[in-house]
Amino acid sequence: MGNPSISVITVGMNHLKYIKELYKSLFDKTTKPRTSFEAIYVDNCSTDGSVEYLSTYYPQVTIIKNEEPYGFGKNNNIGVDAANGKYIAIINPDIRVKAGSLDELYNFMESHPNVGMTVPKLYNVDGSHQYSIRGFITPSLFISRILTHGNDSSNDIKMRKYLCKDIDIDKVQPINWAVGAALFISSRLYRELGGFDLDYFLYMEDEDLALRVWKSGHPVVYVPTSHMIHNHLRASSHIGKKAWIHFKSLLNFFKKHGFQIPDYAAKYIEKH
């Protein structure tokens, strides 16, 4: 047998109840991708029996056990280092893939070789649409995000634009970036870009990666025919350690890319 077409990379840290649902959706005969794939799980020092569970019920999953905890980006890069697929699917543990979801992303990328990265349509657990598509952050948008307490249901004008609430959610289209719960990118491009930037320990890695994909000359595309459920495990909307980490990552992002990022998606649409 040759190499798989897709390498599904998942990082978990005490996410047992979520990975049970994720891997069921990946391997159940009703939802399993038709496209050949491998599943790689990077365990970030869990103590909840995650590794034992996967070893028992999903022995086909490649498990990488960390001896010390690492950040989101490094963990995913570790998983990609072990990957053999033509494409990398970064799939968080709080995702459930629906039938055909990875196949849709794979087929789209195969048909559009210049596309750098694709993302699916995400749903909340109650079946409602999740606002996963984003505009690039600016200092004023960050302040608005704080004032609205990170509430995606806010109708603040700036937040509507940032959360891309007025786009056609059923239309294939270029986007600036999307939350990193489910990303699909060619293995070659991921490696050329150096994967996730390790200067970020947690947060902003997904936005940074999408921006670097755009800067490399390849669009990021939303493919709404691919459906996944995201039980969003938000942890930085309240003041605390993770909120402080998020703020430091944001400052790092501005230092690397400046305070005003071009609207790459809009510019791409204008040219095409």
Rank of each mutant, 00 (worst) to 15 (best):
131 Y>Q: 13
65 K>E: 12
120 P>W: 15
78 I>P: 03
86 K>T: 12
74 K>V: 15
60 Q>T: 00
132 S>F: 11
137 I>S: 09
96 R>D: 04
106 Y>R: 02
65 K>Q: 13
66 N>A: 01
48 D>E: 07
50 S>H: 05
95 I>C: 03
139 P>M: 02
84 N>L: 09
87 Y>Q: 07
139 P>Q: 03
80 V>K: 00
67 E>C: 07
134 R>G: 05
57 Y>R: 01
84 N>V: 03
81 D>V: 03
83 A>T: 00
119 V>K: 04
123 Y>M: 15
136 F>I: 07
131 Y>A: 15
58 Y>L: 00
78 I>S: 07
58 Y>M: 00
59 P>Q: 05
113 P>N: 13
95 I>Y: 04
57 Y>I: 01
52 E>G: 08
67 E>N: 11
58 Y>R: 01
79 G>C: 06
75 N>C: 10
125 V>L: 12
127 G>D: 11
58 Y>H: 01
75 N>Q: 05
95 I>P: 01
138 T>S: 12
93 P>Y: 00
76 N>I: 02
115 V>S: 07
69 P>C: 09
85 G>S: 01
109 M>G: 09
131 Y>D: 15
91 I>V: 06
115 V>K: 13
76 N>A: 05
137 I>G: 06
98 K>L: 15
115 V>M: 03
88 I>K: 04
79 G>T: 03
113 P>Y: 04
84 N>G: 15
51 V>R: 13
83 A>Y: 11
84 N>P: 07
91 I>G: 04
46 S>L: 11
48 D>I: 02
75 N>H: 00
47 T>W: 13
129 H>S: 04
77 N>S: 11
60 Q>N: 10
106 Y>C: 06
111 S>R: 14
106 Y>A: 01
94 D>K: 00
138 T>G: 00
85 G>V: 13
122 L>S: 10
79 G>Y: 02
82 A>Y: 10
101 S>N: 05
45 C>K: 12
106 Y>W: 07
99 A>E: 11
119 V>L: 00
131 Y>N: 13
82 A>P: 04
137 I>Y: 10
70 Y>A: 04
130 Q>S: 15
